[in-house]
Amino acid sequence: MRRAFATVIALTLLIPSGHAEETPMETTHPYVGLWVTEDGRIRHELLSNGRYVEARGTRERAYEGRYEVTGNHIEYWDDTGFTADGDFIDGVLHHAGMILYRR
């Protein structure tokens, strides 16, 4: 019993809570995948592990971080500390004044 308790405590200290990568989204989740502006300049790839990669123009990895979706709302936490959010409305992602379409 004492050993099991110590293991639980050790895991709790090693694994930060609230991180999307702990509980990957199902790959069938409707928002996982590539979202692109009409001109193709901005591309958000929402990965099934709760991470995202944003490409801008020729910069393929301009931003990277984690995201969480609650209902139709998405929250982004960039690895540099920047935060942003958006909403999925009628199959379109509205994010920071941009409109991205599922590809």
Rank of each mutant, 00 (worst) to 15 (best):
V8I: 10
F5Q: 14
A10K: 06
E21H: 12
E64N: 09
G40N: 02
L13I: 07
T28M: 04
E45G: 06
G50S: 03
T80N: 02
A84S: 10
L34Q: 14
R3T: 12
T27V: 14
L14E: 02
D87C: 11
Y31S: 08
R41T: 14
M98Y: 14
I99V: 15
R59F: 15
A4D: 14
A4L: 15
R3Q: 12
G71K: 03
G57L: 06
R51V: 03
L13Q: 01
I15A: 00
M98P: 06
G40Y: 03
N49K: 02
N72T: 08
G40H: 01
M1W: 10
G86Q: 03
N49A: 05
G57T: 02
R2C: 07
G86E: 00
L47F: 07
H44M: 10
A84V: 01
R61D: 14
R2W: 04
M25K: 11
T27P: 11
L14P: 01
E21Y: 13
A20L: 05
H95W: 03
G91Q: 07
R41L: 15
A96H: 08
D79A: 05
P30S: 04
D85L: 05
M1K: 11
H29P: 03
A62G: 12
H29M: 09
Y67W: 03
V36R: 10
G33P: 03
G71H: 06
T27K: 13
F88S: 05
T80C: 00
